[in-house]
């Protein structure tokens, strides 16, 4: 009998069928709901069932009920100790520390992200980085030395980069929804890079929302009695600060709606991100951001980048640009 190491708290009841099989995961689907049966290298996630060892090809059926799940008709109880709580948690918040830690994440992503990822958006010359100038870095007609670049990375990728950069500029300095639409569905990967970026953005919005919640609960001096702008919050989040939760959620939901497409994988990940549910690797990073431990922040960032070929780095890029937009 195989051993279940953990199961995500967002797994929903249903009778699932095998959708696809990868090296370290079997993807089950029921309607538009996914459950991913994965090995330890992938690790816990909102809708992941982590089993011990290599994912066995002998898993043929999966049924999730209220009180248990059945794999190949063998019943496994939902032991509380093995439940993975995928919700983003912000328990401590110090604005200076958090911002400085985000800078460490950004440096690590710039240095170590795979070449094909969207981390190029964060380099200084692109002006989108946390440290970068607040000027529009991209002109639509700026196609100078592109021939060489096209030979290096290919015409498709070059054009995708151009579009994604334009979308990121919109997200950062203009209309978020327009930017999200410009980026969605673009790029390589089973979940296209642009979609991973957008799910990172949704995670950032959730983090910003929770930070504001903690700040108002605990009366953190950095926020107490301040207007949104001076407390490092932009207008959208300021609405939340004014107890207009519906509106803030509304923006997040508009982003989610704009980011959704017909790729079922993308939609599953976007839904989790919109609800503030993240993979273990990302949750650990968010936890590390709240405390002073540079090595742990770097390690956690690198761990997120092990997700997929570029998915982790793309999500982190979206996350960092989202944090820059929503948390100064």
């Amino acid at each position: 009998m195989m051993e279940i190491m953990s199961f995500g708290n967002q797994i929903r009841s249903g009778e699932y069928k095998i959708h696809s099989t990868f090296r370290s995961a079997i993807n089950f689907i029921s309607g538009d709901k996914f459950v991913f049966v994965v090995n330890e290298s992938v690790g816990p996630g909102p809708v992941n069932i982590v089993i011990n060892g290599i994912v066995p090809e002998s898993i043929e059926s999966l049924k999730v009920e209220e009180s248990c799940l059945k794999i190949n008709n063998v019943e496994y109880g939902f032991e509380l100790g093995r439940s993975y709580n995928s919700a983003i948690g912000i328990s401590e918040y110090n604005h200076e520390l958090f911002a400085s830690n985000l800078g460490i994440v950004e440096e690590t992503v710039i240095e170590k992200a795979p070449e094909k990822s969207l981390a190029f958006l964060l380099s200084d010359e692109d002006g989108l980085s946390l440290r970068g100038p607040k000027t529009l870095p991209y002109k639509n007609d700026e196609r100078g030395n592109d021939k060489k670049e096209e030979e290096r990375i290919g015409a498709f990728e070059l054009e995708c980069r151009r579009k994604i950069r334009a979308g990121a500029v919109q997200i950062l300095y203009g209309d978020v929804i327009t930017g999200v639409k410009m980026i969605k569905g673009l790029g390589p990967g089973l979940t296209p890079s642009g979609d991973d970026f957008n799910s990172g953005l949704l995670i950032a919005m959730n983090v910003a929302e929770r930070i504001e919640g903690v700040a108002s609960e605990h009366g953190i001096p950095a926020f107490a009695g301040m207007k949104g702008e001076s407390a490092g919050m932009t207008d959208e989040i300021l609405r939340f600060a004014q107890n207009d939760k519906e509106t803030t959620r509304g923006i997040l939901e508009s982003v989610y709606e704009a980011a959704r497409g017909k790729n079922l994988f993308t939609n599953a990940f976007l839904e989790c991100a919109a609800n503030g549910n993240v993979f273990y690797k990302f949750r650990e990073l968010i936890r590390a951001l709240q405390f002073t431990n540079v090595k742990e922040i770097i390690n956690s960032t690198e761990l997120v980048m092990t997700m997929g070929e570029t998915s982790g780095a793309d999500q982190l890029t979206g996350f960092l640009i989202g944090m820059k937009r929503f948390l100064k």
Binding site: F22, G185, L186, P192, E309
Partner: peptide, 28 residues
């Protein structure tokens, strides 16, 4: 994604291939 990227890399290295891409068929 890892498999797609690895295969794309191998395709790009095939003699005679000037440019190549392996992507999901999104409208974008």
């Amino acid at each position: 994604s890892v498999s797609i990227m690895l295969i794309a890399k191998q395709v790009a290295a095939i003699k005679g291939v000037i440019d190549s891409s392996m992507v999901m068929g999104t409208e974008e």
